[in-house]
């Protein structure tokens, strides 16, 4: 994975697959850290699965026996001398937290979070919600599928190309307003 936002796209799909009704994705930027948190109320994992989930030879996919999503995310975090933590309870949900040292030479770029979030919002089933929260030391904003669906009414999907473009641009504008002024 070339960008952290690609890991986020990949890992958050797991929450959708877990049948979550509420997914909370948080990106926190501090002076020297990037903290990514993905929390869901999906099916969760038992202790045995949780213990082996960072092993590439553990997977729920049926097309092959290898699952690289979590291992790659963990690798990216540890390369920057950060860490990956997963808490999960069966039938209650899962919380994945990844911490990166932003100034470490091996820390991957964050990349295009706006596109990642827009695509995730299109992938969430209609009876589930995804909320994205962006935080910096100067403040932050959030955007959720619930408010977007309300604005669009029931008949327009979040996956429509025009809506996708709007969501990504909106997030980009908001993020820039909190990150660009400091120079």
């Amino acid at each position: 994975m070339k960008e952290l936002s690609l890991n986020v796209l990949d890992i958050t799909h797991n929450s959708i697959t877990a049948g979550a009704k509420q997914i909370d994705l948080t990106l926190e930027l501090t002076a020297d850290r990037i903290i990514i948190r993905i929390r869901d109320d999906g099916c969760g994992m038992d202790e045995k699965m949780l213990a082996s989930v960072t092993d590439p030879f553990t997977t729920t996919r049926t097309t092959r026996r290898v699952g690289m999503g979590i291992p790659l995310f963990k690798l990216a975090a540890e390369q920057s001398e950060g860490f990956l933590d997963i808490k999960s309870r069966i039938n209650e949900g899962t919380e994945v937290t990844a911490v990166f040292n932003k100034n470490h030479i091996d820390c991957p770029p964050l990349g295009d979070m706006a596109s990642t979030v827009a695509m995730l919002m299109a992938a969430v089933p209609e009876d589930s919600d995804l909320n994205y929260r962006f935080e910096t030391e100067k403040g932050g904003f959030s955007l959720g599928t619930a408010e977007l669906r309300e604005a669009l009414g029931g008949d327009i999907s979040l996956g429509e190309p025009e809506v996708q473009q709007w969501i990504a641009e909106h997030i980009r504008e908001q993020e820039q307003s909190y990150t660009c002024e400091k120079e």
């Binding site: 994975m1 690609l6 796209l9 990949d10 799909h13 996919r61 699952g67 690289m68 999503g69 790659l72 695509m119 992938a123």
Partner: peptide, 8 residues
């Protein structure tokens, strides 16, 4: 296709 393999 948007699994780990596709995204990577």
């Amino acid at each position: 296709g948007m699994a780990t393999c596709g995204i990577a």
